[in-house]
Design a protein around this nucleic acid. Structure first.
Length: 538
RNA sequence: GCCCCCAUAGUCUAGCGGCCCAGGACGUCACCCUUUCAAGGUGAAGAUCGCGGGUUCGAAUCCCGCUGGGGGUACCA
């Protein structure tokens, strides 16, 4: 890959003044605050790509900036200017899942801040004022073209194989016409008067300069006919008003950057620094969509992924520290993240690797106590524990779950597997046995029956709390029966758990408890007798 | 079509001119451990560094072209 900057031109943290001519005193501004923003649109669930962008923003402001002794602020702004695509509850959902993810914001719609309000629908006067200022200065104009005309225009252009785009029909309308149309109340939008000559250079922090010929840039709509601003206007006005120093956003925004730069120029404002984060692609290529699996943070949460595992995975999708270290706690990321080490090439989302991280955190990082707590909502949902125990660490159901969680810790990949994998520890009665599972390969039902009957006889006098002792007794029993240990253990395992896979047999029986073990072995014997009596299955 | 971005194993990546006939991780396979399944341990396969030209004593690393992949092309963000 190409590194955009040589070692001499690479700054530790880039300054907005990069957009001006490179100035030697740039180092003098090193203590200027780093203010970044994450600006989701409340149109649905939070996409993992958006979450990663939010993460990188947050790490820049709270990690890298503070290490460089610069003031850092992570601002959350809601871009709800599309009244048609607005989804009720989406904003609350995004805030909630961002909090679950582990990010904290210094300013935002819920916590306020010095540059509020942080919801664009509450700032419309600002945008109108800004747009009208540009109109007054001759840098923007009213456009009365109907959506139908624009639609027709695009169709004609594509039929003639011309690049689609607005034909600037209203750009030079006589002032009297404009005044008359407005007086008449004709619906209109305000468009930006893009310079027709020259070039605009976007200095992307990860890619270096990207040059655009201004002729290829469009007269974009700034203010829609419903009075709401488009993304372009709102974004520039707000980033200025909120003193945003660095814009970290998805790569899909690169084509709009020159337009935004021209807007800053028209307003006479110095633009912030830009860094476009690489896209996250789907396994087969293209955008990550439902077809490939989960795409939203909400789904990953529901599937039992831990926020710290997801954060670790997402951070490493596009960023690396030394190419070798894989496990990063949130604090590690704050300590080590640098924007310079974000890789500009797009990455493919790998569900298997995410699952590995999740399993790693469950198996090696969470304490049994912590795992228990996180399992509770999933177990309650499945009806295996009292819902009251989800929030109550002292609830007796916690004590029932903890030993089971301890045994399953190395086997769980996601929390959502909890109900299935811990179920037999938490229920009184097992579902009916699958007789085939009770009889291991190379053994007959009759042999197993004999073995289990022997087990049933010795079980009441075995002390299951002493695992070593009970293991010794059962091994001795296997010898007496002329069986290998495994041949005896498997039927017992199936009898007490209902399945062929479980933690070690003796720790499993200890946690299930003597009473239930006895009952389950008896029921397994009954099930086996029923099978043995049926000639069809013998 | 036009504009733009990207390009090291199936995937995520290290690599900033010699230490690289390319290192780590996921996945895959084998073996060890073992009462099952995991976890853990050991090892293996897997990359003509997309292709072609340059520059250089020397290129995965710099330059150009090509190809491929991706993004944008709305009164959506």
């Amino acid at each position: 890959m190409t590194r955009a900057f040589s070692s001499t031109s690479r700054l530790r943290l880039y300054s907005p003044s990069l957009h001006a001519r490179v100035r030697p005193e740039v180092h003098g501004c090193m203590s200027s605050p780093v203010r970044v923003r994450f600006a989701p649109s409340p149109t649905g669930l939070l996409h993992v790509g958006g979450a990663r962008t939010a993460l990188f923003n947050w790490l820049l402001a709270h990690g890298q900036a503070s290490r460089e002794e610069r003031e850092g602020a992570f601002v959350l702004r809601i871009e709800d200017t599309d009244r048609n695509r607005l989804v009720e509850g989406a904003e609350a959902g995004i805030l909630d899942v961002l909090g679950w993810f582990g990010l904290t914001w210094d300013e935002g719609p819920d916590v306020g801040g010095p540059y509020g309000p942080y919801r664009q629908s509450e700032r419309t006067a600002l945008y109108r004022e800004a747009a009208e200022r540009l109109v007054a200065e001759g840098k923007a104009y009213h456009c009365f073209c109907s959506p139908e005309r624009l639609q027709r225009l695009r169709e004609e252009q594509s039929a003639r194989k011309e690049p689609p785009g607005y034909d600037r029909h209203c750009r030079d309308l006589p002032a009297e016409t404009v005044a008359a149309n407005l007086a008449q109340g004709l619906p209109s939008v305000i468009r930006f008067k893009m310079p027709r000559t020259g070039e605009t250079i976007v200095r992307d922090l990860l890619r270096g300069p990207i040059t655009y010929q201004n002729v290829t840039l469009e007269d974009l709509v700034l203010l829609k006919s419903d009075g709401y601003p488009t993304y372009h206007l709102a974004n520039v006005v707000d980033d200025r008003a909120m003193r945003i120093s660095h814009i970290l956003r998805g790569e899909e925004w690169i084509p709009t950057a020159p337009v935004h730069l021209q807007l800053y120029a028209a307003f006479g404002w110095e633009p912030p620094a830009y860094a476009h984060m690489p896209l996250i692609l789907a396994p087969g290529g293209g955008k990550l969509s439902k077809r490939h699996g989960s795409t939203s943070m909400e789904e990953f949460r529901a599937q039992g992924y831990l926020p710290e595992a997801l954060m670790n995975y997402l951070a490493l999708l596009g960023w690396s520290y030394d190419g070798t270290t894989e496990i990063f706690s949130k604090q590690d990321l704050l300590d080590k993240f640098t924007l310079e080490r974000v890789n500009p090439s797009p990455g493919t989302f790998d569900y298997a690797k995410l699952t590995w991280f999740n399993a790693y955190y469950i198996n090696h990082i969470l304490t049994p106590e912590d795992l228990t707590a996180r399992l509770m909502p999933f177990l309650a949902e499945a009806g295996l524990v009292d819902p009251a125990a989800v929030a109550d660490a002292g609830h007796p159901d916690r004590a029932r779950v903890r030993p089971a969680a301890t045994l399953l810790k190395d086997r769980l990949e996601t929390l959502a597997q909890g109900p299935d994998m811990l179920g037999y520890f938490l229920t009184e009665d097992l579902p009916p046995y699958d007789a085939a599972l009770l009889v291991p390969k190379k053994m007959t039902a009759a042999e197993v029956l004999t073995a289990l009957e022997a087990v049933a006889r010795m079980l009441p006098e075995a002390d299951l709390n002493d695992e070593a002792a009970s293991e010794a007794r059962f091994r001795a029993l296997a010898d007496e029966l002329g069986l290998k240990a495994g041949q005896l253990f498997m039927p017992i395992r199936v009898a007490v758990t209902g399945r062929t896979q479980s933690p070690g047999l003796f720790e499993t029986m200890r946690v299930i408890g003597a009473r239930r073990c006895v009952e389950r072995v008896d029921r397994a014997i009954a099930a086996l007798r029923a099978v043995a009596a049926d000639p069809a299955t013998a």
